[in-house]
Structures are given as C-alpha cells and as structure tokens.
C-alpha cells in the first residue's frame, strides 16, 4: 500500500517541479498553488488515501505526505516570491517620474511682515515682562498732546504734523503715547510693564523713509525703583535680541516733551556708522501725575520705535512705502 502511495507522491513531486519550471509570472505560480494545494488540488486526494493505509504504516505515510506538501508549498512560494519581486522591479522602473516637474500647487498664506515683526517684538519684550496693551487710533487732542505735556502752542508740536478731523479737538493719534495715559489710569497704583503697539498717523508727504500711516511700538515701565539704568539695560537687551549681539548701542541726550531726561538710541551698522532706532527717556513727572502716579514716589521709563524701521533694518528693505502698497509679490517673500 505504502509503495503505491510513494509512487504517487513522486509523480506529483515531479509534475509540480515540471509545472514550476514552466511558470514565468507570479500569477502562474498562484495558479499552481491552487492546482496542487487548493481544495480540489492534486495533493488533497492523497490525504484521503491515508485512511486506507494500515495503522502501523500511518506514521510513515503521514511523514511522506507532509514532506510532499511542504516541498510543493515552499517551492511554489519561493518561485512566486522571486517572480513577484522581478515584476515589482519592472513596475517601479515604469513608474519613474521627472522629479524636476513642479509639485501640485498648495496656496500658502503668510502674515504681513509688520505683523511678523510685531510678533517677534512681543516675544522679546514678553521675556522681560512687558505685556501688550492696545488703545484707540482716533484720539482727543487732550489725550494725544495735553496729557503728555504738550500743551497747545508748545514748540514741540512742530515735531508732530497732525491729521485733524472735522470734529474739533479730535485727531488721528500721532504716536502710541496716549496709550500710556489710558494704561496708567487703568492700572494705577500698580506697577506697570507694557508695550503699546499700533497704527499712528502723521500729516506728512511720503517718501522712501516717511509714511503718513505707520506702526509704533511703545514700551513703559513704572515702579518704585525704575531708573535710566534699567531703561538702558532693557534697550540693550532688545537690540541684541533683535539685531544680534555684535551691535554696539549708543545713547545720547534728546528731547521728547513726555520724558525727562530724554534719550535717543542708535545701534552700529556694518560700516561703523550709527543707525537711529528709537527714542526713550524717564517718564516726565507731569505725565506720571496725569496718569495718577506720584512722581516723587514712583518713577518710570518709556521708549518708542517705528515698527517699519525695525522691519526695514532687519530685512534690508529700503522703501517704507512697500509695506502698505500691499503688492502680493512683495508680501509673499516674508
């Protein structure tokens, strides 16, 4: 009995080997797998014949049968895998693209360079405890000038070319400084550390370095122990963080009606020159008093800068008018 079985097994083994040598695609291998090992495959009937094998021979027969099954299985699998890889290689070769073709366009939005500059400034000043405070753009003459020690007909009003509205005593703010008064009135008697960003307006013709609308960022600190030394330290830190440690910083006496002493700050450029960058000073006692503070007990400093100027120096932009002409070809570069 076992001999017959042996014979059949050998026949199937040979047939399978012959078939496999003919198979030249992975699909053909799959067909062979079904032909031999499928439900109606050639190996399956042999299993039925196990019943007819006498008990003492069953172990040997089983071994033979399993050997056949494993042999066919692994032969087909190995051949199939080899073919499949070959076929995949061919397909991958066919799928090659010109990688220099442009990608599928995805519209990319960006923030305006002034917003980006402001965000950077917010971060730098936040590290030093200055929080953002915003106030209105249309102001009374009182808030924009008088409360800031700029009474009517003060010579320093010449430094502020002003847009007046048809409503008497209402102006477009010429600086962010009226925000100081709003802030002080809101927070007094607490100490203050804040930056005040926003649009300001000056009645002046535009050129490469002047705009009639511009952003200012103003900073103030009020407390029991605020000195010009703190102001210098703060501004040094700001300039070094924004423009790099290698910048030298120059402090010189200047004049702003709302600060006393007043100080102008410049930083070194690459050619050894000085670039004016901001104005600052110790808050004028009259301004502190207008905000509700006792200037004999507390002190404060204030500084203010043109955000466009910071952006221009940072990015090397040479014409301030670029910012608000909103040419997308300009804006999309930042």
């Amino acid at each position: 009995m076992i001999d017959v079985l042996k014979q059949e097994i050998d026949q199937i083994r040979e047939a399978a080997q012959a078939d496999l040598s003919q198979a030249d695609t992975s699909d053909a291998c799959e067909e062979l797998r079904i032909k031999y090992l499928g439900r109606n495959g050639l190996v399956t009937p042999l299993m039925q014949k196990m019943k007819e094998v006498p008990n003492e021979q069953k172990a040997e027969a089983g071994k033979l049968l399993n050997g056949l099954k494993q042999f066919v299985e692994s032969e087909i699998e190995q051949a199939g895998e080899k073919l499949k890889r070959g076929e995949q290689d061919v397909r991958l070769k066919q799928e090659a693209v010109d990688v220099t073709l442009p990608g599928r366009p995805v519209p990319l939005g960006r923030l305006h360079p002034i917003t980006q500059t402001l965000l950077e400034l917010y971060d730098i000043f936040a590290e030093m405890g200055f929080q953002v405070y915003q106030t209105r753009e249309v102001e009374t003459d009182e808030m924009n000038f008088q409360m800031l020690n700029l009474p009517e007909d003060h010579p320093a009003r010449d430094m502020h070319d002003t847009f007046y509205t048809k409503d008497k005593g209402v102006v477009l703010r010429t600086h962010t400084s009226p925000g100081q008064i709003h802030l002080m009135k809101e927070r007094c008697p607490d100490p203050i550390r804040a930056v005040l960003p926003g649009k300001c307006y000056r009645f002046e013709q535009t050129d490469a370095s002047h705009e009639w609308m511009f952003y200012q960022l103003e900073g103030i600190a009020i407390g029991d122990n605020i000195t010009l030394a703190d102001l210098k330290g703060t501004l040094n830190a700001f300039i070094h963080r924004t423009f790099g440690k290698e910048r030298k910083v120059q402090f010189r006496c200047s004049y702003f009606p709302f600060t006393e002493p007043s100080m102008e700050v410049a930083m070194s450029d690459k050619d050894g020159g000085w670039l004016e960058i901001l104005g600052s000073g110790m808050m004028h006692p009259i301004v502190l008093r207008n905000g509700g503070y006792d200037p004999e007990k507390v002190s404060g400093f204030a500084f203010g800068m043109g955000v466009e100027r910071i952006a221009m120096l940072k990015y090397g932009i040479d014409d301030i008018r670029q910012f608000y002409s909103n040419d997308l070809r300009f804006l999309s570069q930042f």
Binding site: R187, D224, N225
Partner: peptide, 27 residues
C-alpha cells in the same frame, strides 16, 4: 528737578551711565 537730572545725565554722558536689567518687581 527732572530737568536738572537731565543736565546731570548730559554732563556724565548717557553712554557712560550705568546699565542694568530691570530690577524692579514684576507687575
């Protein structure tokens, strides 16, 4: 008095005045 303090600062030269990081309490 603040005007006189500015005169003192001018005489000492702002550039040569001391510098420090904000030392006051954080509001």
């Amino acid at each position: 008095p603040a005007d006189l303090v500015e005169e003192v600062a001018r005489m000492l030269d702002y550039d040569k005045l001391p510098t420090r990081m904000l030392a006051d309490v954080l509001p």
